[in-house]
Design a binder for these strands. Structure first.
Lengths: 253, 253
DNA sequence: CCAAAAGTGTTTTCCATACACCCATGA
DNA sequence: TCATGGGTGTATGGAAAACACTTTTGG
């Protein structure tokens, strides 16, 4: 266990110099595929240990910009829909020594053994557009179905759980356009809602509700290549206000 | 403007040594008095500039514990009801140079000119129990009615606005026991709801709703010394679960 | 006795839920 | 033709909103 990963040590040295100490960002990137809610995870080099994507904030960088940067690098996507959802600030969040061992870092290194406060962000992305890209310390970046997520490094299982609760709390009854492709069918939208809420909905009532919201428009085409009746395609009306929460506007008096 | 406040500089040196850099906590302490929602503000020594209470996180201290500590020092209260509501992480949150000038700090001092990311907490406290206490840098700690809050230092007007929106979003229809004394009348509770929500409610419907919640019990006494009909006193049933939001419980798999 | 606030009812409206049927398609 | 999922209706129940009257007290 004393075979230190030298490039990793150098990487941390760089982070130590350029970024804010004691502070990190962890990202829960949600995608929806095959009727399942998925998250993007990273496998660390030379290990079978997985974690959430994350990173650090540069000294003169906005926190939101840092989050965008970090998530962009893992997904290849611009202008992600990001939501800050919780600060994980306990003095002891996980067993640091055991964790450094799992990812082959020197246990006694002072640099990375600082306690970190993590700012939790979740992203809603269109699954098919993502190009999963590992970072410097990892060798695999892949989607995991929420139900199958293994035991992760750090307190990342906890972070995912909190992210999911926040997502449920936030989205209420608004359609989740960021998780879907431009066009989709009503049953697909219903599966998405069911998956996030963790319950099953009545298709008739669901249809009425989303139609009543006035945010969808039906296209003339139908989904081709499915068995059974071909469902209509819909899309979110472009002119409508997005379902992003209203921006908190309040300026100094 | 070059009369530097030496003790202040020393204070910042201490903070610089013991606390996490680039990170601070700002607290919006809400109280309710005379049918008005109020916040606790501090006036800086030798100035007429006001700000929110705030402070820094020690290197091995939980963020929530730090917030408790900071708020306790300003209120004299233990075990405050605190809610983390937003991270203010823009790279430039306000005009630093102008601000340092207002509070008589050397404009070119490197120590306190670091950009800070602020973790916003709001507290709900019983107005009458608070002993407003200034800190080392301030000479007055006082309640301000939300409607009268002056132009504050930093971006604190903005932080208050966001705190209020978060409070409205969080509390939904739950009674706000932390803001009220042990006993209170239904009309008083109604005023509180109206003040926070910024709208007026129907007394009859309000009465039915809070009674239906089953969380209140009527005492035999009535509020004395009021003009007109004396209203009954109520209190929250002690055995009932508190109206604190359910703790986010989710452990590592 | 009158003004002002407290205390409680009934009616109506609306939204969420429950539920049933026909349609289109591939096998 | 039948199994499967798509698409749309109608009925019902419960909560929220609208609304009116009596009671108590100080002046």
């Amino acid at each position: 266990m004393t075979e230190y990963n030298d490039p990793a040590v150098r990487y941390y040295q760089e982070v130590f110099d350029q970024c804010i100490h004691y502070l990190s960002i962890d990202g829960v990137i949600f995608g929806f595929h095959q009727n399942q809610l998925k998250v993007l995870l990273l496998r660390w080099k030379g290990t079978d240990a997985w974690s959430l994507p994350g990173g650090f904030i540069r000294k003169a960088e906005s926190v939101d910009v840092a989050a965008q940067r970090i998530m962009q690098e893992r997904t290849g996507l611009d202008a992600l829909y990001l939501q800050q959802f919780h600060v994980f600030g306990e003095a002891v969040r996980y067993d640091q020594e055991a964790t450094w061992r799992k990812i082959n870092l020197p246990v006694d290194g002072a640099k990375w053994s600082e306690r970190t406060i993590s700012l939790g962000y979740y992203a809603l992305v269109e699954h098919s557009k993502v190009i999963p890209t590992p970072d410097f310390l990892t060798e695999v970046c892949a989607w995991w179905s929420l139900d199958d997520v293994p035991a992760l490094l750090f307190d990342h299982n906890h972070i995912i759980a909190v992210a999911l609760l926040s997502l449920r709390k936030d989205f209420n009854d608004q359609p989740l356009n960021h998780l879907l492709p431009d066009t989709f069918t009503i049953p697909e939208l219903q599966r998405l809602h069911e998956t996030i809420l963790g319950l099953s909905l009545d298709g008739r009532n669901f249809y009425k509700k989303v139609m009543a919201s006035g945010q969808l428009e039906r296209l003339s085409e139908r989904r081709a290549g499915t068995p059974h009746k071909a469902p209509f395609l819909y899309r979110f009306k472009p002119s409508e206000p997005t379902n992003r929460l209203p921006t908190l506007e309040a300026k100094t008096a």
